[in-house]
Simulated assay, not measured.
Amino acid sequence: MNDKNPKKISPERKALYYTGMGITGIGILLFLSVFFTAFTQDPFDMMESQGNPMANGFIGFILIGIGGVVMNLGARGAAGSGLILDPEKAREDLHPFTSAAGGMINDALEEVDVLKKRSEEPEEVIRIRCPQCKELNEEDARFCKSCGKEL
């Protein structure tokens, strides 16, 4: 992690992520090239001139998987993606994402009226005790909420 700002993703992880994205892109192009050549050329001529036309598809499919793994390592770090089994390091690797999610949750919770009232100063409430049953009632109540006698 970057020592200056823990919320920033290191340049090494960014480079790893973009490398994985490039590998995935190359894999997709290789995989799709099989379909392109199949539609533009006669399949029997293709097999005689180029060998197995499906090899590009298999290589492309493998590169798509490798690119996905490399992108995952770049995005979440080694511990965050599960390559290294260390919970403390995983928390550190995932910190930019968890703090962003926590920030969004806090923003949403600030909009809830019930939670706003709890965070503000509590209102002072005056209660009146019923002389018969000793139940606490609201200040403006005319009758006890427990026994029903007049206050």
Rank of each mutant, 00 (worst) to 15 (best):
T40G: 05
N2Q: 10
G20R: 04
S10G: 03
K4H: 12
E123I: 09
E124Y: 12
I28D: 04
E110V: 09
T19K: 05
P131N: 03
E48N: 15
E111R: 15
A141Q: 02
P43L: 09
I128F: 04
E12M: 08
V114F: 14
M54V: 08
I26G: 10
K116Q: 15
D107Q: 10
S99L: 15
V112K: 13
A101W: 09
K4P: 07
L115C: 07
G22L: 13
S10C: 00
A55Y: 12
E110M: 12
F31N: 04
G148T: 02
N72W: 08
L73W: 08
Q50N: 14
N52D: 13
G25Q: 01
T19Y: 03
C144S: 02
E150A: 05
I64H: 00
D42H: 08
I64F: 00
G102W: 11
V69W: 15
E139Q: 11
I66L: 15
P87R: 14
A100E: 13
A100P: 02
D107V: 01
G80I: 00
N106T: 11
S49N: 10
V70W: 07
P131A: 01
I9H: 06
F58C: 04
E88M: 07
A75L: 13
R118L: 14
G22P: 05
E110C: 04
N106M: 08
S81V: 00
I84L: 12
Y17Q: 05
D113E: 15
N137E: 00
E48P: 03
A78M: 10
K117F: 10
D140I: 02
S10T: 03
R76W: 13
P11L: 05
V114N: 07
K89S: 05
I64K: 00
D45Q: 15
K14T: 11
K117E: 13
D140R: 12
M1G: 14
M104P: 01
N52W: 06
A100F: 11
F61H: 11
V70K: 02
I66V: 15
V112N: 10
T37Y: 14
D45C: 07
L32Y: 02
R118E: 10
A75S: 14
K116E: 03
V114A: 14
G51I: 07
M71C: 08
A79I: 05
R13E: 01
K149A: 07
I126Q: 14
K145T: 09
E121M: 11
I28F: 15
S10H: 01
R142Y: 06
S146I: 01
M54H: 09
I105S: 03
G51P: 03
L29A: 07
G65H: 10
P6K: 11
N5G: 06
A101E: 05
G65K: 06
C130G: 00
I23E: 02
K145M: 06
M1L: 08
P122V: 01
R127S: 07
P53W: 00
P53Q: 03
S81Q: 09
E110P: 06
C147A: 00
S99D: 12
N5W: 02
L29E: 00
L63W: 09
F39L: 12
